[in-house]
Design a protein around this nucleic acid. Structure first.
Lengths: 195, 195
DNA sequence: GATACTAGAACGAACAGTCGTTCTAGTCAA
DNA sequence: TTGACTAGAACGACTGTTCGTTCTAGTATC
């Protein structure tokens, strides 16, 4: 997580966010009370409300931070690779790495129903990172790497398997680290859409 | 939904369950109060507790009913088809149909985090229907229809795209009914694992 | 057929506890 | 001294649940 450097030497907002993502992903947003966050973070109620306004504000800050981080990572990938094949593979590799290194981050991004508590928020798959993923596939179709087909079907075919693996890994059904499945999964995924 | 015939001519448990699945999927479990269910169903608080014990009991009854229904449907599919290819395709077709005809049922089955409120419940992908899906793929590998590979990767590759399409459809990103994508999606999915 | 009785289904006002939030007092760096 | 920040007790709204009562339909008795 890119540490948001903030003036206070004790960096209270970061403490709050770290505790929050841990509790939100393990117990769920509604089963986490503000008092729980106070207790586990060692930060007072007053500070929490001073920095984030309300409980939803914590969830929102967390979400925006992680989405932004993902956007930047995808921008990097687009810069570092120039074929759809290489880009999509790099995206999956990145998602697998994050899942292994920071499972709570991946859980919060992909498998938390933000609309339920962040009122007026669009579902995660209409967020920019997901759009970037679909665009990579669409560009691959324009360039002839990906065979002509419905763009949504193509995107679902390329990334669907990987997202399924992530979901199973986070649910404890896969024992081995995701990175060990990467090559085999990618060759299957690419077979489904290549010319 | 298979109507649980119950003596009472007014069939109160069914009224409660219908209201509950509607509210749970649209607002979320925690944002739905028992009073909301009382108001929308026209059933009294007392009756709800008489039939289901507590709020969680409603969610649990709903879940068990829908999982059972899915198990039976998959059993039928296994009886009616004898190749992995035909079985897997039939499963996807069925899931697409349910998504179109009863989106709330599909939402509740796939995209509600039951562990958060039904304490001690395993995640949905360790439930029997999901195991049945993985077994169909494994059998296809034994028979030589599916090329040799990690069984989990094979299952994720076959069903991942379809589940992604369902998710996008339920989130309102796909305008057309899923059934229109079935042929194209299936041919992609099968390409990824066939010999 | 009429009556008395019974079991369980339905009701909803009342309760105890928890939650998110507010507020006043205090701390500390500049 | 000032102003940003921290602290945590206090508050009111709301939640899931309970429980005493009423209603309903079926059975036994006459």
């Amino acid at each position: 997580m890119p540490s948001l450097k903030i003036k206070s030497s004790r960096n209270i907002p970061e403490k709050i966010l770290k505790t929050a993502i841990h509790l939100f992903t393990n117990r769920g947003y509604f089963s986490t009370s503000v008092s729980d966050i106070v207790r586990e973070s060692g930060v007072s109620t007053g500070s929490i409300y001073h920095h984030f306004g309300d409980k939803e504000g914590i969830a929102r800050a967390l979400f925006e931070m992680l989405v932004l981080r993902m956007e930047n990572a995808f921008d990097d990938i687009e810069r570092q690779h120039d074929t759809a094949q290489a880009r999509c593979r790099a995206v999956i590799k990145l998602l697998f790495q994050i899942t292994e290194e920071e499972p709570e981050v991946m859980t919060y991004m992909l498998f938390v129903k933000h609309e339920e508590f962040m009122l007026g928020t669009a579902p995660i798959c209409s967020s920019k990172p997901f759009r970037q993923m679909r665009e990579m596939v669409a560009e691959g179709m324009d360039s002839g790497e990906v065979r002509p087909m419905d763009p949504m079907v193509a995107a679902a075919s390329i990334f669907g398997g990987a997202l399924r693996m992530i979901s199973m890994r986070l649910d404890g059904i896969l024992q081995q680290p995701l990175t060990e499945y990467l090559d085999e999964l990618w060759s299957s995924a690419w077979r489904s859409v290549c010319q």
